[in-house]
Amino acid sequence: MIAYKDYASIELLVNGEKRKVFARPADTLLRVLREKLGLTGAKPGCENGDCGACTVLIDGKPIKSCLTLAVEVGNKEITTIEGLSNTEIQEAFIEEGGFQCGYCTSGFLLNSYALLETHPDADDKTIKEWLESNLCRCTGYEGIEKSIKAAQEKIKNR
């Protein structure tokens, strides 16, 4: 049985690296990533599970790191935006105007990345089902929608 009574040393597997942190059991994964590991790509937009700016991948699935305790995910693979580079979806976001202020972007990128890894041929309904988990206030979602479609094309030609 795992038991943490107070501040404890926990080991996380982040972007392929084992990282040791000292955290409270009540610390959310979002706070630990940002404040203990310097991975500030995950953003606090609401800390209430509503906006998706803090989205990271746990074993490849998007989850909201503000709704996750760091102690819960000790044995799982965590992927943050810092763990993505030169992916099709990142390129597409640049080419198709998937962002403006950039604050929601990490969350949108990780969610979209997971979507396209899971369902490369996702139809509009599936794209909507996944992406309605995140909020963007700048783009009106047009650029994000175009980015997903463009990334799908790129993935086909991998």
């Binding site: 991975l39 500030t40 790509g41 953003k43 935006i81 990142q90 640049i94 604050y103 972007t105």
Partner: peptide, 10 residues
């Protein structure tokens, strides 16, 4: 690049 890699510092 900064904004699509999580490296933009706010």
């Amino acid at each position: 690049k900064e904004k699509t890699t999580g490296k933009q510092i706010y």
